[in-house]
Amino acid sequence: MTYEGVLTKMQTEFSNPIQYYLVFENSFLSLNQLLGKPMEISFVGYQCLNCGKKKKIFRQGFCYDCFMSSAAAGDWIMRPELSTAHLDIEDRDLEYEKKVQLQPHIVYLASSSEVKVGVTRGTQVPTRWIDQGATHAICIVEVPNRYLAGITEVALKNHFTDKTNWQKMLKNEISTLDIIQEKRQIKDLLPAEVHEYFYPEKEDIHELVYPVLQYPTKVNSLNLDKTPNFTGKLTGIKGQYLIFEDGTVFNVRTFEGYVVKIDI
C-alpha cells in the first residue's frame, strides 16, 4: 500500500506505549502497527508548510522567505527569553505573538539523555516530552507567559543542559539522576520573579513508554537530500524518530515540508 503527502511532525497519543501517527492531507498511518515490518520512504519534492509553494525547505518546514518573515519562526520560538508580547512590543506580528506568548507555560526537568531543562506551553504537556524522547519528566514552575518561562530556563541552563543528546536518547542511554531530588534543590536557582510560581511539594512524575522492539547500539541518521530512497524494517519509534533494524534513524521533524511516498 502506498501513502503520499507532506511530512509534518508525527502526531501522538499518550498511552502505554505511546501511539504514533503520520498524518497526510487525505490519509494517515498508524505507525505502531508497522513495527517489525518493512517500509520504504521515497523523497518526492518540497512544499512549504507556511505558503504551500513547492520551494526548497530552509528550516522548520518553511522555505527561506517564510522562515525569515513568518511570526511562527521568530527567534523567541527557540529562545523564549526574547519574548516581548507581555510588554506590548511586536517582533513580527503582535497579535500572533500575544496569542502564543501570553498563555501558561511550563518549565520542566526531563530525562531524555542527560537531565535537561525545557520550556513548553501548558497545552503541550505531555506532547513536548514525547517529542523529545523523554522517559520521565517533572514540572518545576507554571508561569503566565513565555518570557517568565524563558528567563527561568536561562537561569537553570547554568546547572542543566537544555539539549537532548539524540544519539544517547535513541540508544536508551538515559541519565539515572533523580529528577525529584533535583527539583527539591532548585528554588535558590530560580529568578526572583518566578518564586511565587514554584510549588516544591508538587512532585508528580510523568513516565513515558515508547513503542520500541529493540534499541540500536549504533545510529546513522537518514538524510533524504542525500538518500532519497530508503527501505528498512521498522523496529521502534521514539521522540520524533523512526528507528530501523540496521540502526538507521529518521527524524521526521527535521524533514517537515518534504513530500514523501511511503510504501508498506
Score class of each variant (00 low, 15 high):
Val119Pro: 01
Thr164Tyr: 04
Asp65Lys: 15
Gln167Val: 14
Thr176Val: 12
Gln181Val: 06
Ile140Trp: 00
Thr176Asp: 14
Ser27Ala: 13
Cys66Gly: 01
Gly239Tyr: 01
Met1Trp: 06
Ile243Leu: 15
Ser221His: 09
Leu94Cys: 03
Thr235Asn: 14
Val212Gly: 04
Cys51Met: 13
Ile41Arg: 07
Ile243Arg: 06
Leu109Ala: 03
Val194Glu: 08
Ile264Met: 11
Ile77Lys: 03
Gln101Met: 11
Ile179Met: 05
Glu245Asn: 05
Trp76His: 13
Phe255Gly: 05
Arg121Lys: 14
Lys54Met: 12
Pro144Ser: 12
Phe230Lys: 14
Ile41Gln: 06
Glu196Thr: 14
Ile151Glu: 04
Ile174Arg: 10
Leu242Cys: 03
Lys163Arg: 15
Pro144Trp: 08
Ser111Gly: 05
Gly236Leu: 05
Gly232His: 08
Ile174Pro: 04
Leu170Arg: 10
Thr12Met: 08
Ser69Trp: 00
Asn145Gly: 05
Thr84His: 07
Thr152Gln: 03
Leu29Asn: 01
Ile180Pro: 01
Ile186Glu: 03
Lys218Ser: 14
Tyr147Gln: 05
Asp131Arg: 03
Cys139Ile: 13
Asp225Glu: 14
Lys238Gln: 11
Phe67Pro: 03
Tyr258Trp: 04
Ile237Lys: 07
Val100Ser: 06
His195Cys: 04
Tyr215Ser: 08
Gln60Gly: 00
Pro216His: 09
Glu114Gly: 09
Val209Ser: 13
Phe58Gly: 03
Glu173Cys: 02
Gly45Arg: 05
Ile179Asp: 06
Pro191Cys: 09
Val117Gly: 02
Tyr20Asp: 11
Ile18Gln: 08
Pro144Gln: 11
Ser111Asp: 07
Gln214Phe: 00
Asp65Gln: 13
Val143Arg: 02
Arg92Val: 08
Leu22Tyr: 00
Asn26Lys: 12
Gln47Cys: 07
Leu109Ser: 01
Ile138Asp: 04
Lys233Pro: 07
Leu177Lys: 12
Ile57His: 02
Leu190Glu: 08
Asn229Val: 15
Asp162Thr: 01
Arg121Ser: 14
Asp65Thr: 13
Ser69Gln: 10
Ile89Met: 12
Ile138Cys: 08
Asp75Ser: 12
Tyr241Asn: 11
Ile179Lys: 06
Trp129Cys: 05
Ser70Pro: 00
Ala137Asp: 04
Arg184Ala: 07
Gln132Ala: 08
Glu256Cys: 15
Gly257Arg: 06
Ile262Trp: 05
His105Val: 01
Val23Trp: 00
Gln11Asp: 12
Glu25Gln: 13
Ile130Thr: 03
Leu94Ile: 11
Gln214Asn: 13
Glu207Thr: 13
Lys56Gly: 10
Met39Lys: 08
Gly232Gln: 11
Val154Ala: 10
Lys226Trp: 09
Glu153Asn: 02
Ala72Thr: 04
Ile130Leu: 09
Leu22Gly: 01
Gly239Ala: 12
Pro38Ser: 13
His159Leu: 10
Val125Asn: 05
Gly52Lys: 11
Pro17His: 08
Glu4Leu: 10
Gly118Val: 01
Phe28Asp: 10
Tyr199Arg: 13
Gly247Asp: 10
Gly239Thr: 04
Pro211Ser: 10
Gly5Phe: 04
Thr164Gly: 04
Lys99Pro: 00
Thr123Ile: 12
Ala149Met: 05
